[in-house]
Every structure is written in C-alpha cells, then in structure tokens.
Design a protein around this nucleic acid. Sequence first.
RNA 1: GGAGGGCUACGCUAAUUGGCAAGCGGACGGUCUUGAAAACCGUUGUCCGAAAGGACUUGUGGGUUCGAGUCCCACGCCCUCCGCCA
Length: 431
Amino acid sequence: MIDLKLLRDNPAFVRASYERRGGVEGVDHILKLDARHRELLAEVEHLRAEHNKANKAIGQTPKDERAAAIANARTIGEKAETLTPELERVAAELDEAAGYLPNLPHESVPDGLTEKDNVVERTVGERPEFDFEPKDHVALGEGLGIFDSDRAAKTSGSRFVYLTGPGVMLELALVRFALDYLMEHRFTPVVPPVLVRRHAMYGTGFLPAEEHEFYVVERDGLFLTGTSEVALAAMHSDEILNAADLPIRYAGYSPCYRREAGSYGKDTKGLIRVHQFDKVEQFSFCHPDDSWDEFQAIRANQERILQSLEIPYQVLVMCAGDLGSSAAKKVDNEAWLPGAKRYLELTSASNTTDYQARRLQVRFRGGVGSEGPQTKSGGTRFVHTLNGTACAVGRMIVALLENFQRGDGSVDIPEALQPYTGFNEIKPRAK
RNA sequence: GGAGGGCUACGCUAAUUGGCAAGCGGACGGUCUUGAAAACCGUUGUCCGAAAGGACUUGUGGGUUCGAGUCCCACGCCCUCCGCCA
C-alpha cells in the first residue's frame, strides 16, 4: 500500500513513478474514490456528532421527561444511518483498488521495462579455469548421489527432488554457515510457519496480484509460502514497536514452495527450479531514515557469504519494470555456472520501504527522525521492511558443484565450509 | 475431536439497574538542574480537517436499544484439562 495522502497531494509524481514501471491502471479511479470517500465521511461524521450530542443529553434528563428527548435522538440517528451504507461501499471499493497499487521505484533504480534493461553493476571473483570440459550440476549431482529427480517425479511430479546423502550434509553445513554468519550481525534465527493466512500474503504484497504462484490449502484457508519473508514480515503485524529496538533482524530458515506456473520447459532438470527448496532469508524491520543503509548491509552480507564460499558472481540491479509489486529497489547476485556456462540468480535483496509495513500495520513509536518529533497521530510511524536471501540451499549447491568440480567428477568443498561439512571433497559413487 | 476459562489502549488493570472507557506502570516530550536522579506538567490507537473541532476504537462480525465494555447470536484467537499424536 502506498500513502494515499501522497497520491492526493502529488498525483503527478506518483503517475510519473508508475510510468517508469510501465504504467499502472486505476490511478484516476482511485483519486475519484478517495475524494468521494472524504466527502461522505465528513457528512456522516457530522450527523453522528449531532446524534451523540442528543444521546448525551438524555442521560442528564430526569427520567420522567425523557420521552421527547429520546424521540429527537432517534430521528437524528435514522438520518445518519441512511448515508452509512454508501460510505462503507465507497470505503471498501477504495481499499480494494488501492491494494493493487505497487510501491514507487526509488530514484536510483535504472529505467527500463523488461529484464533486458537490468544493469550489471559489478562482476566479482575469478571464474575457475579447467583443463577439461566442465559438467553442469545435473551430470555432477547424479554421479555424486547428491539428489534424485527421477524418483521424486514418481512420488510428487516434475520439479521435485530428493536431496540425498552428501547433499543433505551439504545443506546442513550451508544452513549453519549462513546462520552463524547472520547471528554475528545481530540476526535472530527463526524457523517460521510456512502455512499462513491470507492477510499475511496480502500484507507482504504477494496478493492480490500473484495468486497463481502459490499452493493453497483450501480446506483451512491457508497458503504455502514461497519464502519465509511472508511469515517474518507478518510476525509484527498490528504491532507498535519501540524505536530503540530497531532494527529488528531475523534470519528465517524454512522450506519454500513455488508453483512455477508458466515456466514450463525452463530448467526442468536438477535443483535450479523446483517446487520446494530450503532457504535462509534475512529480514529487517528498521527506522525509515536507516533503510537504505540497512539495504546496503543486507547486500554486503549476501556478498560476503558468496565470497567466503569463493563463488564468482555478478551484481544485477533490477530496472523499474522488473521490480515486484512491493519493492522500491531490488538487487540480485547471480553466480557464474561454468558447466551450464551462464549466470544463475542466487540471491535477491529488496527494500520495500513502508509498503509492506502499511499493509501489515507495523509501526514504531519514539525517537526523533528526519520529520522531527511527531506531534500528530501519537507519533507513530510505519517502519521500513527489507528482505534478502542469505542462502538458497538448492541453487547454492548448484553453484558449488559447478565451480568446485574436478576432472574425475569429484567436487571440492570450499575451505570456509569444511568445518561445517566435516569433509573436504565429495567423490563419485562406485558404479 | 470433547469440556471449561479468558480477550479493554504500549503493558497491567477498573467501569452499580445499559448513560461521557477511569486508574497505575512504561515510553516519549517539556519544566527544573553544572549534569543526572527525583518531582511536576504534557503526550502516548485510527481517521477527516489549514485550524477550531469532530468521528471511530473494549478480539471480529451481526442483533436488541435513543444509547452497548455491559444484554443476545455467530465466529476468531489465547490458556487449562481430557482424548489422539511425531
């Protein structure tokens, strides 16, 4: 949700921002609804004020003289009620329509409408050189017994995997490695629920726009989340936080479920694009003045994790047209895959500014910010929320396999990870 | 799945027959101070409004009533006990 006051006061700015995203429907309609809503609200409130006044007078009237006063109050009350349904209808319509408005792109976001316009900011690390033809992760994984897609297809269908043997040890090592790193940076580890109510999906901005992306448990009205971001963001919904406690940082570890509708034929083999994978995610609730610093901090964590694991990658800044609905800015890190000879998105970081906070009603009180001490509305303001991958386990394994492979099909473990795995290489299974 | 208890503002707690939701604590701001503590004053849910002011808010949604924290109905959530269960 964006601030309707901003839309009302500066529609040209909001329109121009949405133009950068490729245009957003319904802005004029929302402006009209908003004006009509405020008009009706003033009318209804005026009538209610008179009704309240008349009712208060009854309490002070001697009991034997009340009949006339009650009749008077009743008349005024009925008048107010005739307008109320129209007010409620307009309010609901406004709410519904405004829920579809995406966040405003930050000024630093590059122009462009499609993924072709995303900008490579930097390339980091050395691509490994091989004196043999490097294999892709599917060929390597089969030889190493790390995962089994064929049997998963039998059990669950395509795009599922059994992670097996050394693959499981690799997962546990990566997860613990990422959590240890984040705990040093004041993140509290959390294993969140992966089944959530509709309001959590709506609040994070995944609904109403992207309903086809999720598995739904109809019977219980619950959604399977595609990232722990959803449950972490909703964790403090309807709360008023203390400014002194900010930033509040969580490291979520959970399975992620994605329908991958419309991606038929892409990455059909292996671990790259699956319906279920595990991920360690960074999430932060912070003061609005600090959110761009916090964004850099989350990105720095992502890059240090990649660098520690010696994975070459490029930093890709998403253009305005390629942002999700809730992000004001989004930056991905893409690992180089020498076997597949291409880059693969390993992490993504977003600053959603107050967009999710407004939908989830996460506010804070206290402290002094850029807008000075708050004198109105009790001094509560919306926090800013940010999220960023720390380690998407499946894809991280893909990157490790391809970059650390040897000619005989075995794979080295990067030094930083060895204390966690307890072994320093994975050898092919005996045939 | 069954039985019982509960839900009031940031927290804790009141509110006679239905008649202006009080009080304490915490936090924030201010006064005072060399600095602080203490004390005192103010603020401390949402919305409309330039302001004055007003409307809404006692888990949610309905109902009764001139008027509901209070009475009635439905639902949600939390707690306790029983059953089942990794």
